[in-house]
Design a protein around this nucleic acid. Structure first.
Lengths: 196, 196
DNA sequence: TCACGAATCTAGACAGTGACAGGATTGCGC
DNA sequence: GCGCAATCCTGTCACTGTCTAGATTCGTGA
């Protein structure tokens, strides 16, 4: 009886922290406004258990957002294109695709009102994703000046992020076919920005 | 005694609905995560009173967001520039300035996770602001095709919105002087997008 | 091997939240 | 002047995040 792991959950979970992040990310996307207690229930632990791994509810949200940044970094690194220009466009498309796939976590990742704490983990994983984009922008013209690079990285990122957000909040398109259009808008806009 | 309006508040507030929106917008920007009850307290009314004007807490938030869109529309209409190009850039700067001035309400205006209801008022005021931007974009080249306009309005709006969001969330700049840079990035990026 | 401290989890309690119900008060049209 | 609808207050409910105290388990050194 007690030896059956399916029937009786062990007193110590073993890896509750990462389980809470995984279950949290799932519930955030499926339920509307899940609570800390709801996530604890889904992870089959008591409502007080998460506090031993996260100092506060905001820290769990920050961990979910950091997990999102890690996934985004993986998507960006998986891009394989022939030229630096197409590589940058494909990374923009991957950024857009991530926002569509995980809209709630994506909002968490870029919303200081929702995630009020800046944990070390969050800082690290978010800047890692940012640096991937940085290098891709730099590669389109390795000899560009610092001033030019400063302006370019910010406008390129803003365009990618802006299109992702607007489509996320259903401000741009409504029908499913329009998603292709959105990706074309992004490609065409990026092409205009990176030309000297 | 009873005739003194300063000492004794009347049983009927008179204009509680707009007061709640005004107080709500103030508290949203000053306090962190104000509650419906906190707004009711600030409006010097019982915690149940708001329910007679808003079916739910989400409806009050939607009203605050709609109020933000009306203010934004006013800012966009106040722009006065010589050419359609500079007019569009100034509208972008006004958009950016609004986001800096009212960051929390700005997030509310473009976050379906925070404002879960789409009231008629919200729809009306948000599309009114959108149409102002639409006309400004169209004016840069009145003879452009529908396809070109579709792409341009989306990319222009995305760039403006993206730069506003990234600076809002302190992803772009940290020092106060950099705000000028951000506006320059926006101007330069817009100039690249609207050129045929 | 076993004892002991640290880490982990449960259970209960607390103030605060949004929502609702019932009653009090007020303003307006007939 | 009367009745009724709109407005507001008070009390209550389930639920939330956080805290505390106690139970259970794990890891480590003797």
């Amino acid at each position: 009886m007690t030896g059956d792991p399916a029937k009786k959950a062990p007193y110590h979970h073993g890896d509750l922290r990462s389980t809470l992040v995984r279950v949290g990310r799932t519930l955030l996307e499926t339920e509307t406004n899940p609570s800390l207690r709801a996530i604890a229930r889904a992870a089959q632990v008591s409502h007080g258990a998460p506090m031993h791994h996260f100092p506060s509810w905001a820290h769990l949200l920050a961990a979910c957002a950091a997990d999102g940044f890690r996934e985004l970094s993986g998507d960006l690194q998986a891009v394989d294109a022939a030229t630096p220009e197409t590589r940058l466009m494909d990374m923009g498309a991957a950024y857009l695709a991530f926002a569509q796939r995980s809209p709630v976590v994506f909002r968490l990742m870029f919303n200081r009102s929702a995630v009020t704490v800046r944990t070390e983990e969050f800082q690290r994983d978010s800047s890692a994703a940012y640096h991937l984009l940085q290098h891709a922008v730099r590669a389109t013209d390795p000899g560009m000046s610092d001033a030019r690079f400063d302006a370019l990285i910010n406008t390129v990122w803003a365009l990618i992020h802006g299109i992702s957000v607007l489509e996320l909040e259903q401000q741009i398109c409504r029908s499913a076919e329009d998603i292709t259009d959105t990706r074309d808008f992004l490609r065409h806009g990026l092409r205009q920005l990176i030309q000297p």
